[in-house]
Simulated scan of single mutants.
Amino acid sequence: MSELPDLILLLVLLAIIGAWLKLSRGREQAVQEARQQCRQHGLQLLDESVGLRSLRLRRLHGRVALERCYTFEVSIDGDDREPGRLWMIERSLTGLSLPTIQSHLPDLMAEHMTPPPADNVIPLRPHLRKDSRLH
């Protein structure tokens, strides 16, 4: 009689170990993908800091799959830390969020742009009343 609870406990333990190994393998794939995306976009991946943030079920091509969200930190110029995220289903990248590079353009690029107006007032057309048009 005590063999059945022991067998159930063993199966639960094996399932936990299997899930942990699968998530570890998924994290390694996420680190590789984050490295590749950072290299492609000219960013530095900081501290190999890719970590699992969330899991969710998502319908993809008519089937339900487990999507993993990983967060990491990147640097644009070596002096900053910006958040990044990537979403993966199995081995494929399904989403990517990186900091905007345009907000960190060097000052040289700003010289070629039109300067912003000196004030923040937007001139409006004068509003004409109906009775003033008749005169």
Rank of each mutant, 00 (worst) to 15 (best):
R125G: 01
P126C: 02
V121N: 01
S2Y: 01
C69F: 03
L21Y: 04
Q44R: 12
L96N: 00
L134N: 14
L7E: 06
L134S: 14
S92H: 09
G95H: 02
L128A: 12
E111V: 10
T100V: 15
I17F: 10
G84E: 00
R125M: 00
D79W: 12
D79V: 03
V50H: 07
Q44I: 13
M109D: 12
L66H: 02
D107F: 05
G84M: 09
V64C: 07
S92E: 14
L134K: 14
D77R: 11
G42S: 08
A118W: 06
T100H: 09
S75P: 12
R39T: 13
R68Q: 12
D131G: 02
T94A: 06
M1D: 14
P116I: 10
R85V: 03
S2N: 11
G84V: 06
G26K: 11
K22H: 13
L43P: 02
Y70D: 02
L60R: 09
C69H: 13
L124T: 03
L13Q: 13
L108I: 08
V50G: 04
L14T: 05
L52A: 01
D131A: 13
L86Y: 03
S49H: 04
I101G: 06
I122V: 14
Q44A: 08
I89D: 06
T71R: 14
Q40N: 08
Q32R: 15
A110T: 12
H41G: 02
R27Q: 08
P123A: 02
S49L: 06
L108G: 15
R85Q: 15
E48K: 05
A15F: 00
H41F: 06
N120E: 13
E3W: 00
I76T: 00
D131C: 06
S75H: 11
V64E: 09
E90A: 15
H127L: 13
R58T: 11
M109I: 11
S92P: 07
C38D: 07
I16H: 07
A118I: 02
T94C: 09
R35E: 14
L105R: 13
I16E: 06
L124Q: 07
H112W: 11
R85S: 06
S132L: 07
E33R: 11
L52T: 05
D6P: 00
R63D: 07
L134M: 10
T100N: 15
M113K: 07
H127G: 04
L108H: 15
K22I: 04
L4M: 11
I122N: 10
A118P: 04
G95C: 06
L66C: 09
E67W: 00
L7V: 08
R25E: 15
W20D: 14
K22G: 04
P115C: 00
S49A: 12
L96Y: 05
C38K: 05
S75D: 12
L128D: 09
Q102C: 13
L105H: 09
G42L: 00
S132I: 10
S54G: 11
W87C: 01
